[in-house]
Structures are given as structure tokens and as C-alpha cells.
Write a protein that binds this DNA or RNA. Structure first.
Lengths: 208, 208
DNA sequence: CGTTCATTTGAGCCGATTCAAAGCCCGTGG
DNA sequence: CCACGGGCTTTGAATCGGCTCAAATGAACG
């Protein structure tokens, strides 16, 4: 029954495994689709390893990344019967999958999740609607840092394009702003996807 | 008990009336605060007449209007214990007020509301993050039109500043875009706050 | 009729985009 | 081990959409 619900294209990438009791586990290679716009909403997901991007497209290809999801975080619940968004694995990702029954049993938890999802989206509205490029990047780094446990070192699983589409900017602008933060030694780049935050306070104050 | 929970500043404006059974009714004059950032979340609201804006402020005064609410629509539920937003009556507004008990009894409905709230916010992210000024205004007008019943005539209870802060633009840009739509006779203005949509299809196609 | 506030219009500027090219990283194969 | 190719990232130069500042117009109200 689970296999039948999976889109065929993914059969090769998904390795569902029944584990003790409540949920299944699925593995997705980097870049693989988890669900698409228009798919029926039948499950929701918890990241166990890896990272996920959820996004929407305009007809001309412009993309808005609505959220990223990291280990421990849940996603996939939406209003209505079918998805309005795409979800993809950013890196190799394993997910715990919850079916409808489990969603109904946990509808109390789901309310809290929906409310925090709404809060995140609305917070993000402020960032995108009213903050300039530096502020957006700073807010992004701070948010990511907190969600990765608050250490000084920060691993970015997503590309510059993903970040740009999340923040409503272009890759070039993202890159330029990161360079500027580097020049002011607010951050140091080990490589393009690994950042050390040298001045957390400075970064925070840039968020406004 | 209800009166005690009301901030003093509003006592003059709020006329709570116990009505048959489940909820109270409160009236707010134009511009009056319904709740503020930091207030405890104790109730949620349904607009019966008028209109409401929900927004957040940055320390330097920049404002992001997160949502507008019209008759029939509910608002006021948020994650956590206290509000992250301000809510104000735009025009003279009457609200049905639901207390905690009613919210718990209706937690099933609340889930649906939270999910659609999240969907709205995420849709809005796409508009603000990836669409140009004309597209934003067009999307705004179309959305408002649908929520007011889909007629050709459209009443805007909110100011240009409210619209600008909702769409991440300035008043001047809003005004200029509206003028441009007028010049292309997509719309006609009876007065600044009353719009007739002359070419709904054209308006739709501007949304992308 | 004057005051006040909201809206519109104009001119110049600026931050972010666009377009273009170079640099860098990494896996592949000779 | 190095050359090659392809993807991602960075950097540069020029453009442009929306912003800022400023002023005019319009509407509401005493």
C-alpha cells in the first residue's frame, strides 16, 4: 500500500522500511523530489538526516523557497487536499514518514506545528518585505545557526541559488554580501559552504 | 474577568457584550489596537464588520503588514504564549471574541485555520519575494476581490501606506502602479479607496 | 475658508539586478 | 600525476526598478 502511493520515478531512490511501530523511513538522494505541487497530501515527514527545501515556482521559472528543514523538523502538512509546493532533498536525506492515521492521532501536535509554521512564514515575510540584502543574509545565518545548535561553525547544505531564492535575492547579491561580511571579519569561510561566525553580536545587530 | 483582561487604554473603545452562549462581541474604532506584541494570547477573533490589519515592526519603524482580515475571517491565534504581532482595527470594526475554552473545544477547526494561515503567508512570500511591483498590486487586488465576493467593484478599507507595508513597497510606488493600471484602463477609480475592475482577465494575467 | 491628512506626481538617486567573464573545486580519464 | 570538463561561486561593469525627497493636488471636516 505504501509502495503503491509512491510516484514511480522515485521508486529507485526511496527505500521505505517498516520500523518498530509508528512510521516508515525513506531515503532520498541529493536533488530528489519528495512531493510535487498537485500531489495529494497523504503523509507528513520528519527529517532524520540531511536537509530539505520546500518551494514554489512561477510560470516563468522564478522560484521562491518557502522553508528549509533540518534534522528533527517536520514538514509536509498543508491546507487542502493537495500540495501547493514542491519538496526536495538538498543533500542525501533520510525521513521518517507519517501516514494519515498517525497525523490524525497527533492532530494536537499538528496544531502546534502548523502554528509555528505560520509564525516562521510570517517572520520571513518581515525579512523579505522590509529588510535589505545584508539584513536578510544576517537573519538567515542567525536563524540557521540557532537551528543547528548555536555553535560558531555553520554548515550550509544548500547552494547560493537556494539561499537567493529563499531570501528573494540573486546568487550574485548573496555572494557579494557574504564577501562583505568576510571583509568586515564578521564571518570566515572555510569553504563556500562552511562558515565560522567570528562576531555573533555584530551579526545579530545586522538583523535589526 | 473579561474587563480585567482588557488593556486600560481600550476600555473606552471596547464595548464587550455577552451574547447568547459561546462568545462576546467587541467594537473598535478606526485605528484602535486589538492586541499588541507581547500581550498574552488569550482569545481569538472573528471579524463581523469592518477590517483588521496584523503587522510587525522593526526597531527603526519599518513595518510589515502580515495580513488583512475581513468579515467572516478569524485571526489572533499564534504559536507560543504571547503575541508576536500587533492587530488594529482599520475602520470601525466589530469582532466576535472567543476565549481559551472555546479555542480548546474548537481545536480541530483551529488546525484548519492555522494551516490556511500558513498557506496564505507562504503564498504571500512568493509575491513579495519574487514578483515586481505591478504583479504584487495585481495579486493584491485579485485576492481582495475574491475575498469580497468576486464582484467587479472593490472597496479598499486600508490606506496606501497599509497596502505598501503589506506588499513590501512604498506608498509612492503603490500610487504610481495604480495610476498605470488606470491608464491602461484595467481599473477605474471612483475615489482613492473604491476601484472598479474593468478587465479582470488582464488583471489576472498580470499576477503571473 | 483654512487646516489637516491622504494621495498623487515629479526628479534624481541608489541598491540590487543583469549580463558577462573569470576563478575554484572536484571528479574523471588519460 | 596532470589535463580536462562541468558545476558552483565569485567578481566586475552597466542598467534599471523602486526608493527618497520634495512639492502639488485632493478630500474631509470643523
Amino acid at each position: 500500500m505504501y509502495a503503491a502511493a509512491q510516484p514511480k520515478e522515485q521508486a529507485e531512490d526511496v527505500a521505505p522500511t517498516q520500523i518498530a511501530g509508528p512510521h516508515l523511513v525513506a531515503t532520498y538522494r541529493a536533488g530528489r523530489e519528495i512531493y510535487a505541487e498537485g500531489d495529494l497530501i497523504e503523509k507528513c515527514y520528519q527529517v532524520s538526516t540531511g536537509a530539505v527545501r520546500v518551494y514554489r515556482l512561477l510560470s516563468d521559472g522564478r522560484r521562491q523557497v518557502v522553508s528549509f528543514h533540518f534534522p528533527g523538523e517536520m514538514f509536509g502538512f498543508e491546507a487542502g487536499l493537495s500540495h501547493c509546493f514542491f519538496a526536495e532533498a538538498i543533500t542525501e536525506t533520510t525521513l521518517a514518514v507519517f501516514g494519515r492515521r498517525q497525523m490524525q492521532e497527533r492532530s494536537r501536535d499538528l496544531l502546534a506545528l502548523a502554528l509555528t509554521g505560520m509564525a516562521r512564514a510570517q517572520q520571513h515575510l518581515l525579512v523579505i518585505g522590509r529588510q535589505c540584502a545584508v539584513e536578510r543574509i544576517a537573519a538567515f545565518l542567525v536563524d540557521l545557526c540557532e537551528r543547528q545548535g548555536g555553535g560558531r561553525q555553520l554548515r550550509l547544505p544548500m547552494s547560493r541559488q537556494d539561499i537567493a531564492d529563499y531570501l528573494g535575492l540573486t546568487i550574485e547579491t548573496v555572494s557579494r554580501v557574504v564577501t562583505k561580511l568576510k571583509e568586515r571579519s564578521v564571518i570566515v569561510l572555510r569553504d563556500a559552504r562552511t562558515i565560522d561566525i567570528m562576531k555573533p553580536d555584530a551579526l545579530h545587530s545586522l538583523c535589526n
